[in-house]
Amino acid sequence: MLQAIASRLASSLLVIVGSLALVFCIFYLLPGDPVLSMVDPTSVSPEVIENLREQLGLNRPFHERLLTYFGDMLTGDFGRSLVGSEPVLPKILHQVPATLLLTAASSLIAIVVGVALGVPSAVRKGGLIDFAARIVGLFGISMPTFWSGILLILIFSVQLKWLPAMGSDGWATLVMPALALGFVGAGSIVRMVRGSMLEVLGEPFVTTLRAKGLRERLVQYKHVLRNALIPAVTLIGMQIGDMLAGTVIIETVFSRQGVGRILADAIMAKDLPVVQGVVFFTAIVYVGINLLVDLSYAAIDPRIRRRGAGQ
């Protein structure tokens, strides 16, 4: 088992290095000059601009820049923002809790709603709950977050005045962004859990369980759900990743503090060091989620556990 985790971690490192290199390349190929977005070329002399390029290392060849970049990163130096010239690392770390909180809250909503609706909708296929579940599924996957976010603001802030429309102080501000973001995940998870439950309900062992005289609740939740979760967990992992990515939009819609917001601003300003810092953070979280997914496989399914241990 430990060996399996170690090999996962090794490949995770590759994922992180790869994504950083990719971002670097994209920025290298991108048209436009970051220096020109830092200063106003009409009021600053060309020498100053040239100096700034020299200072930032922008005029050196590609491979040299790439090597320096990874070298700096190994020593923990993520550079400074091109815009505010503050160090990147503290700037991001400061915002991490807010974004993680939002991602966690929306994941929780997505999983709870997904499972709570998915199970009964499979058990009572064609019933009222099944209908509700299919509506959630349909809306969840077809409504973009910025649209459902705005809708929520219109209803709960503008009309009902129950919740604040923006900001990131206190729990009240978390409710609507988490709902908007979680709804998307819930949509896919409901569909997955429902389909996977239906499949497991058709397995012969379910008949055995009933023939043993087990209570239906035990059959459904202890046995069928656990088997049905095996494929669903993969999707849940991917959905959490998507929700993390979704914070870029939702933090902007609700004017929340957060890493996503920083990223949106940094991309607009072509602020490479900041973008790279955020990518680094996102890649780590993503890899972490994947590792958790793999571990939860093993927790749910003994066959994977035993295989992982080399029998």
Binding site: E203, F205, T207, R210, A211, K212
Partner: peptide, 19 residues
């Protein structure tokens, strides 16, 4: 079920919950 009447099935491999 399981007390006064019990049942066994065709495919023992599929008749147990694998997890």
């Amino acid at each position: 079920r399981g007390r006064r009447i019990a049942m066994i099935f065709q495919e023992p491999m599929a008749a147990f919950d694998p997890v």
